[in-house]
């Protein structure tokens, strides 16, 4: 029984199919990168996996049971989400936001205990926002906010973390830190699914990639097999030069299709 899976899942709005016949089995201990052009359905797939959207056909299951039949609270303890849009209008402190990750673990009259506080601190340290803990989220940069939301997902202690382009507004150093953090979390046994535009990062850090195109998952497998010049030309419409690092991962340099490399 898979921990988390999409089984021939469709998501349709009227006539349009935003996800069509997607089957995906992110596995514990694995870092799955979800790649594809804008509008190819990456975010929809993440939402289906998190139970935020219900498939119009097919199924999304958690521990073998249809996600619709899970209480939200129980899902929240198992699947954490780092949203793409982290904009906030309300001046909460960083710690307030990260502490919200404990919500599904606490009863209404139950204050944070010592263990909750320890989990919150550890989450802030791992996402490198510990020194920001007293700051207001409204005063942070976009990249800092994204790390705060990563910390919040860690505070949930959920075994699966779904991230929607978490590095979109991070500088190169913090982006690398985020990839390495996800890599480490996967190695510790978490299920990591990350929608990501940086194909070099997908090739280097992920165990598996799933390639989305127009709502369909057109290829999945280990990066070395899937990410080749042919597929990248097909899906993204770019020409890719492939380089191989000494450590065995591939790196790409892209050129617009039809524009020859100099």
């Amino acid at each position: 029984m898979a921990f988390l899976e999409l089984d021939k899942a469709w998501f349709e709005v009227g006539e349009a199919a935003i996800a069509r016949d997607v089957s995906l089995v992110p596995a514990p201990g694995r870092f799955l990168a979800l790649i594809g052009p804008n509008g190819s359905g990456k975010t929809t797939v993440l939402r289906l996996l998190a139970g935020l959207l219900v498939p119009t056909r097919g199924a999304a299951r958690l521990e073998g049971r249809d996600l619709r039949r899970w209480p939200r609270r129980e899902v929240a303890r198992r699947v954490a989400v780092v949203p793409q849009n982290t904009h906030l209008d309300f001046a909460f402190t960083v710690r307030d936001i990260v502490a919200m990750g404990r919500h599904a673990h606490l009863g209404r009259f139950q204050p944070e205990g010592a263990r909750d506080r320890a989990v919150i601190e550890e989450a802030m340290r791992r996402a490198d926002v510990w020194r920001l803990r007293e700051r207001l989220v409204t005063e942070l940069s976009g990249g800092e906010r994204q790390r705060v939301f990563i910390a919040r997902s860690l505070a949930t202690e959920a075994p699966a973390i779904l991230l929607d382009e978490p590095t979109a507004s991070l500088d190169v150093a913090h982006a690398l830190e985020t990839y390495e953090l996800c890599r480490a979390l996967a190695t510790e046994g978490k299920t990591i699914v990350m929608a990501v535009h940086d194909l070099n990062a997908a090739a280097r850090y992920a165990d598996q990639v799933a390639v989305m195109q127009a709502g369909q998952c057109v290829a999945q497998g280990c990066p070395a097999d899937v990410l080749n010049a042919h597929l990248l030309a097909e899906v993204f419409g770019v020409e890719a030069e492939v380089f191989h690092s000494r450590e065995g991962w591939s790196a790409f340099v892209f050129h617009r299709a039809g524009v020859a490399a100099r």
């Binding site: 939200r72 699947v79 954490a80 949203p83 936001i97 919200m100 919500h103 599904a104 949930t156």
Partner: peptide, 21 residues
Amino acid sequence: LHGQELNVLLTGEESALSLGI
């Protein structure tokens, strides 16, 4: 008594759903 739920709701609807509300 629902202050904390309201707080979580302030961070966005999907965000609140994913945190178990």
